[in-house]
Design a protein around this nucleic acid. Structure first.
Lengths: 116, 116
DNA sequence: GACAATGCATCCATTATGGATATAATCCAT
DNA sequence: ATGGATTATATCCATAATGGATGCATTGTC
């Protein structure tokens, strides 16, 4: 992540989208995001600490996420993040892109037709 | 692409999945695959020649795709590829992974609820 | 109190990608 | 038919992105 900014338009890197998606589920600190991605993907996707904390730093700079005061005084070390409206908009755009991709996969019978 | 084999399990790189997805639509030669990806994604995703031909070579080695005889005698230079059953199975697995991801995005209101 | 798990940070080797470059065939307009 | 744009593949290189190692400190558990 030597680039100063993420591209404003999709595609996002898989790691970046997973982080935004985790935060779309509520405020979380870095380590919790990493754990959630692992659980959500049944271990298929795991972000190394290098990837995880580097991207969090950059996303904060780009204001796609913001660090917030954690109400938890017991864990001073934690840095808790929240998705910004900008970050949400970008995550939505990426979600739409992936949805379109899945639709093509369905049309080409890589996935079963939608139940109705 | 110095690795001798792609991972058998998702996640695939975005470029690899786009190539497999294009071939799921029928036999195509490399250049046509690149064009289709660009059109299908409205220009958002474009594979450089380095990425495109390198991956095609590796996918052939891994037998996820196979080079077939083109019926077209007018274009000797073309190399036409076909998805193998193995390649199709892997593309299916990746499509399922993405579909699950999209479902999470939908549950978190990054996408509108499914129409019924 | 010992030990594992949590939590963040940085560095480094590896991997993946895009773009430049090269080469050649095909298509199309003139 | 000729000249230029497009098609088509291949390789090289600089850059970007990733994972894992390492370090260090805190929190939870027995």
């Amino acid at each position: 992540m030597s680039r100063s900014e993420h591209p404003e338009t999709p595609p996002l890197s898989a790691a970046t989208f997973h982080i935004l998606l985790a935060l779309a589920g509520g405020d979380r600190h870095g380590y919790a995001i990493g754990k959630e991605v692992e659980e959500q993907t049944a271990g298929a996707v795991s972000l190394g600490p290098g990837t995880l904390y580097r991207i969090l730093k950059q996303l904060t700079i780009d204001a796609w996420i913001a660090e917030i005061d954690s109400a938890d005084d017991e864990h001073e070390r934690r840095r808790t993040y929240r998705l910004t409206s900008r970050g949400r908009a970008i995550a939505q755009a990426e979600a739409r892109r992936l949805d379109a991709l899945v639709s093509v996969a369905r049309a080409r019978r890589l996935l079963p037709a939608l139940a109705r």
